[in-house]
Design a binder for these strands. Sequence first.
DNA 1: AGGTTATCTATCGCACGCGATATAATCGCG
DNA 2: CGCGATTATATCGCGTGCGATAGATAACCT
Lengths: 165, 165
Amino acid sequence: MTETRLDLDQYLCFAIHSAAQAVGRANKPLLDKLGLTYPQFLVMLVLWAEDGQTVGGIGDRLFLESNTLTPLLKRLETAGYIHRTRDAADERQVRIRLTEKGRALRETAKGEKIEWVDRVFEGDQDAAQALRQRITALRDKLLPEKLPPAKAALAKPASDKPPKE
Amino acid sequence: MTETRLDLDQYLCFAIHSAAQAVGRANKPLLDKLGLTYPQFLVMLVLWAEDGQTVGGIGDRLFLESNTLTPLLKRLETAGYIHRTRDAADERQVRIRLTEKGRALRETAKGEKIEWVDRVFEGDQDAAQALRQRITALRDKLLPEKLPPAKAALAKPASDKPPKE
DNA sequence: AGGTTATCTATCGCACGCGATATAATCGCG
DNA sequence: CGCGATTATATCGCGTGCGATAGATAACCT
């Protein structure tokens, strides 16, 4: 019959897929304390690092687009963590700004610790870093050509000539 | 200000999260040819290896539960790839069986190739295997211990102080 | 200037993932 | 045997992801 033995773990894509699910579940207790979902927490991380970013700017860092971010940001606004206001200079953009409550949440978050990394790697920080780098390298090779996010934001973009297709 | 520079890639959880998204996008062209979503494809993989499994059996392999699988399986049934029938011996269970169309899809799938693994690893199979193993090891350390139901009860002697909670 | 094109955000629809709960069948135990 | 506990699946609600598309505003071009 079709009793071909199947080991799903032989598929790299399933390994990553299922690992991401497992990580999500492992993060859940911490996020519940903050009252945030994981994507919401990522947005707060981005805003804690730099307030007043645009929807698109946040999306560049998180690899998300407005169809995902707009509803998410509205929920964060309803929860009282952020304000959403059109940029006066460019009315197409929406600037996301932390409220006092949103900034305060950062202190709560700092008090919490991601416990599962220690539990899994048992102090072997090098192994954790190596794995992290390999995974991000894999991701960056898969993503369509987009400028490396954090660094590009630092330097003022000199007007260059993008080669057109 | 709060201009702490943020490198999200320093977080292992974000690395995995974003890598899983990237892998999903990379798989999309292949899945579109098959007319399946990625979770649907995983279910088909499981069934191609062993037909006639129960909902729970499939869920064990994919780390999913009936709240996710039931609607997904109904869609596969609507698409004509599977049948869902109650097990005669145990009417609680639902057996999932491939249709002829479902089996035929396997041949189509075999003709397709996951191209991005080669593109990313450029023939370095060892690197791909090593990464895969590290990721699955991470996942397995994160997942709660699942005891094979009946067997664990046998070995357990009569220490009848159930954990109060 | 005016018309075209590009950019930015929002909206809609669908498919997961999952917590909470419901329902039905089976098991366990006196 | 009967009744409570357990198991298997289903249902409901919400929050993402994401393709497709719409709408408004800005940039561009001759």
